[in-house]
Structure formats: structure tokens, C-alpha cells
């Protein structure tokens, strides 16, 4: 079981990394097409803005799974608890996990289940009925990144508990501020 969770988490991380890298590259290419088309083409394509934006959302949410996996998420303050295997360190880890579950589980749940109408009226089902007018495809294909990323985060979380001993928090090399 432990091996399976770790293997699954690593495999998903590799996959998410490839897709995220493709999304960043795709976003760059799409925006360039938008700029070039304005000056070069007789009739510029209208889908560039939507496609670039949706690739950004994919980049960001899959990037969030990469960030979670490598423990490079921003913290307000480092833990005052001693590290695992001290029981207080275990407690701190448990508190982290509770926070992640509190945030992520409702998001995943409401992707599939609606307030009324159960499975038929969840977020994904609602998005399936909407059509992106520039591409003519259903919005659900884009929106599916929300549950995909959140479920990957849950699997990475499970892998954190399967891992012994817990790795130290990685020192962030760069940041955004």
C-alpha cells in the first residue's frame, strides 16, 4: 500500500510536470500568435486570448501540485514544533494535513456533487452544458483541471504520510516577491 501510494504520487508528479511545462510553452506560443496575427494576418484568430488564459489556469493549478510535492509553498512562519519523529512534529504534520483536507476536500466534493440534484448538478456537470464560443468545445474540458489538480494534491498528501522519514522542507531558491 505504502509503495503504491508513493509510486502513484511520483508518477502523477512526473505527468503533471510534463503537462505544466507544455502549458507554459503553449501559453507563450499562443500569445505570440496573437501579437503576430494582429500585424501579419488579414483576419486574426479570435481563440488566442481564451486558449492562452486557459493554459495559464492549467499551468497555475498543475504548478500548485508541483509546489505541494516539493514543499515549496509559501509559509507565514516556520513551525515552532520540533521536527518528526518527535511527537510534536507529528502533530504539526497532522495539523498541516487537516488544513489541506479542509480546503481541498470541499472543492473536490462540489466538483462532482451539486447543492440540489446531486451528481447531475455538480460543477463539472454544469460546465459540460456550456460551450466556449471561440473554440466551440464544452467548458468542462478546461474546467476539469480543478478536480484533477486537487486530487493530485490529495495523493501527494497521502504520500507524505507514506514517506519515512519525512524530508526536510526544501529551501526556496526563488520566489515571487
Amino acid at each position: 500500500m505504502r509503495k503504491f501510494v508513493l509510486g502513484l504520487s511520483n508518477a502523477l508528479d512526473t505527468l503533471a510536470r510534463s503537462v505544466a511545462v507544455a502549458a507554459v510553452a503553449g501559453m507563450f506560443v499562443t500569445v505570440m500568435i496573437q501579437v503576430i496575427a494582429r500585424y501579419g494576418f488579414a483576419s486574426p484568430p479570435v481563440w488566442t486570448e481564451d486558449v492562452a488564459r486557459y493554459m495559464m489556469v492549467w499551468t497555475g493549478l498543475l504548478g500548485a501540485t508541483l509546489s505541494f510535492k516539493t514543499r515549496s509553498d509559501a509559509v507565514l512562519m516556520t513551525s515552532v514544533f520540533p521536527a518528526r519523529p518527535h511527537w510534536l512534529g507529528l502533530l504539526a504534520e497532522a495539523i498541516h494535513s487537516a488544513a489541506v483536507l479542509t480546503f481541498v476536500l470541499p472543492v473536490v466534493y462540489f466538483c462532482f456533487v451539486g447543492l440540489r440534484g446531486g451528481f447531475a448538478r455538480g460543477y463539472l456537470a454544469r460546465q459540460a452544458a456550456l460551450t466556449m464560443d471561440t473554440l466551440g468545445i464544452a467548458m468542462v474540458w478546461v474546467a476539469s483541471v480543478v478536480p484533477i489538480a486537487m486530487i493530485i494534491i490529495l495523493i501527494h498528501l497521502a504520500a507524505r504520510w507514506a514517506e519515512v522519514p519525512a524530508p526536510a522542507q526544501a529551501e526556496p531558491q526563488t520566489s515571487l516577491d
Binding site: A37, R38, S43, P44, P45, V46, T48, E49, D133
Partner: peptide, 25 residues
């Protein structure tokens, strides 16, 4: 002139007017 267009239809309209349209959010 290069006009900001909302969609394909507006780009087509600007072209029909002899102008041109482009997508800007």
C-alpha cells in the same frame, strides 16, 4: 484603423467596412 473586436462577427464587420479588427481583452 485597427479596432478592438469582441468576436469573429465583429472582425468580419470591421473588414466589411474596410477597416480591421483585433482581439484585446
Amino acid at each position: 484603423l485597427r479596432m478592438r473586436a469582441l468576436d469573429d462577427a465583429q472582425i468580419a464587420m470591421y473588414e466589411a467596412w474596410g477597416s480591421s479588427g483585433t482581439i484585446v481583452p
